[in-house]
Amino acid sequence: MSNKILAFVESKDGKFKNSAFEVITESKKLAEELKCEFEVLTIGSGLDAEAAKLGTYGAKKIVAADLSELNAKNPVSGSVYSHSAFAKVISETAKQKNANYIVMSATGLGKDLAARVAIKNNSSLAQDTVQLKADGEHIIATKPVYAGKSLVDMKFNDDNLVITLRPNVFKAVKEGDTNAEIEKLDIASLNLSDADFNSTVKEVVVSNEKLDVAEADVIVSGGRGLRGPENFHLIEELAKVLGAATGASRAVVDAGWRPHGEQVGQTGKTVSPSLYIACGISGAIQHLAGMSSSKCIVAINKDKDAPIFQIADYGIVGDAFEIIPALTSEFKKVLSQ
């Protein structure tokens, strides 16, 4: 069988997410290694101009599904979108295009869709991978297990495979400025039935306008060393200067100082930003599990023996209440140059 890749890329409010570019670059790389073709699938409304620009990341052919046309088929009114219908669109497009490999991002949406599509297309699933390589015509996928405490290489029984890429791990590479060619997906050809809309998103509530840790390239996190919720403005000010998301240890989330969405670690979010700054966080094994794959880790802690220093690339031993404001003003200086 000859291989073919379908890359599904996510958008939000008419713009592609960063993960979309990562998915395209990696799909292109895989296609080269497997000597096969790849096409890109988008679902959205009014995305065409943005979609054409995906060409700058090496996408040549885009299949564009129109979200309002899709929603019009939903028997439930007031649908923002439907996971089950998205899964159907991806699954059917892959079948129409004879794509045996389907690549998407391991985001909240992507992981859910990938599992559904894997079942629909009788495929294996390589979830949340951090490395892919071609072994002849086949793919070997590496994924972290036990919250990143170890990694496994997996191979698959056949070459029908859905792959999700951990966000921020794979590089997005721009290459030139050719526009991609867009083909409109014929929604009618999907033969959608009411059962394909068995769950419907009625509303998306944005809890805060702030960047989520799971999507951020820079994260500033605070722990119990901050002593109280009233001191987290220090973390927020530093994050603001860096354009970073704010994170937290479980201790401060459980204490109610910070929202659960900020928790990093084994029972919180797994992150791998370029820069992770941990302030007043001891570095318990469950915290490390969620952030140890960050590219550069900075620890600020008054205890020079705190375990966080064992995985830190840089650190400052001392009082966070003095160090964080000093860092904020140093970063401000450097970044305004």
Binding site: V76, V80, H83, T107, G108, L109, N198, S199, T200, V201, K202, E203, V204, V205, V206, S207, N208, K210, L211, D212, A214, E215, G261
Partner: peptide, 12 residues
């Protein structure tokens, strides 16, 4: 729960 917010989902 999704990145940066929540989805309200209905099903039967």
């Amino acid at each position: 729960e999704i990145e940066g917010g929540k989805e309200v989902v209905t099903a039967s």
